[in-house]
């Protein structure tokens, strides 16, 4: 099955056509997507800025991460589900849309960066000198911040590129 035929199958599902045909479902899902992504980005940025030593220096990095992570995961689930439904409503336009493709690639890269940090440099986070984050932590924090800023930008550009799924 090609990407195009998979996209066509997806957008012809009853749930997808219901979203596409309704005037209010798409904006409602978009609103949920924005509320979710705000919490995802806000919680991740808090940890990134702590790793860079730019915020919450009075608090240990692992405590900042521990407080933020439940937010990140709950909000991420909400954002992914609403995003999938938005995608399904017009899948064949989204898969051809360049900013959308870049956004998906960036999401994978942000995930890999996070996994690398947790399995590598971040393992001994509680032992660090909290005033001087190790280079691995700063690199992971800086990369994460850059990826998420680019994800928001790519997401916003979807509606300004062709084929336009809106």
């Amino acid at each position: 099955m090609t990407l195009e035929s998979a996209a066509e199958w997806l957008e012809n599902l009853p749930i997808s056509t219901a979203i596409a045909d309704s005037g209010s479902l798409f904006p409602t899902l978009e609103t949920i997507h924005v509320l979710g992504l705000a919490l995802v980005i806000g919680s991740i940025a808090t940890v990134d800025l702590r790793l860079l030593g730019l915020a919450r220096r009075d608090q240990q990095a692992w405590i900042v991460a521990q407080q933020a992570l439940p937010w990140t995961w709950i909000a991420f689930a909400v954002t992914v589900i609403s995003g999938l439904l938005l995608f399904a409503s017009n899948a064949s336009s989204y898969v051809e849309n360049v900013p959308f493709r870049i956004k998906m690639l960036l999401l994978v890269l942000a995930g890999l960066n996070m996994a690398a940090f947790h399995l590598g440099a971040g393992k001994r986070i509680a032992d660090w000198n909290q005033d001087h984050m190790p280079p691995g932590a700063r690199i992971a924090g800086g990369l994460s911040l850059a990826f998420w800023i680019a994800i928001v930008a790519a997401g916003r550009w979807i509606g300004f590129a062709n084929p336009n799924p809106f």
């Binding site: 919490l39 980005i41 806000g42 550009w157 300004f160």
Partner: peptide, 25 residues
């Protein structure tokens, strides 16, 4: 200038993410 609106909206979303997360918290 085609990039001004999406670039400005991106900055707007990033700032709202920070404010919304901190205020919810």
């Amino acid at each position: 200038t085609s990039w001004v609106v999406p670039a400005t909206q991106t900055i707007h979303i990033l700032a709202l993410a920070m404010v919304f997360f901190l205020m919810t918290n």
